[in-house]
Simulated scan of single mutants.
Amino acid sequence: MTKATSCGGVVIFRGKILLLYKSYKNRYDGWVLPKGTVEQGETHEQTALREVKEETDADASIIKYVGKSEYSFYSFHEQIIKSVHWYLMESENYHSKPQKEEFFVDSGYYKFHEAYHLLKFPNEKEILKQAYDEYKKLRSANRWGKKTR
């Protein structure tokens, strides 16, 4: 058993959420949130920002920590237990460009209900709900957006 840590972001611009579509060798892998592995010497925040930029080319900033999800999978007959730390992020615009090297073939911003139904993994759906609830609270308190911070 090996433990691994990743970090990612729920990136929002004008109420819409940034998702990535992964397809390896034309096999459906599904829609996901941007995330990736912590590199040596990086903080969780640095990893989340780097991975969002690498995987989506979006310029985003962290608003707040949302929470942690955990899951396990098998790789080469070894169980991997993965923890993912998630951050609510704000993008500067709707720009995104999927990272082809990671087999991302599409990306885009979607309304909450669309994003929720597109996401492949239940743990990412749960994180999306938590992050979007935080976004709505901040927006209703006029604490969302570059001009109000």
Rank of each mutant, 00 (worst) to 15 (best):
V66R: 00
A58V: 08
G30S: 07
A58M: 03
E114M: 12
K64I: 13
H44V: 14
G145T: 01
S72L: 12
A4H: 10
Y110F: 15
Q99R: 15
S140Q: 10
V32P: 07
Y65P: 00
Y109F: 12
K129V: 15
D29E: 14
K64L: 14
I127H: 00
F104H: 05
E90T: 05
R149P: 06
D59S: 03
E114A: 06
I80A: 07
M89L: 11
T37Q: 12
Y116M: 10
K16E: 02
Y87Q: 07
N142Y: 06
T37E: 12
W86Y: 09
K3C: 11
A60G: 01
T5M: 09
K53N: 07
I80H: 12
H77R: 14
N26Q: 15
P122W: 03
E90P: 03
K136Y: 10
R149A: 09
E54H: 13
S72T: 12
L49N: 02
S72F: 11
Y132H: 07
A115R: 05
E70R: 15
L128M: 06
K100C: 07
V11K: 00
E126N: 09
E70V: 08
Y21T: 04
E55G: 05
A48V: 05
F112P: 01
I80W: 08
A48N: 04
K136S: 11
M89W: 02
E126K: 13
K53H: 03
N26F: 12
Y71F: 15
G15R: 05
N142G: 12
P122L: 05
H117P: 00
L88K: 08
V66I: 08
S72C: 08
R143V: 00
R50P: 05
Y109G: 02
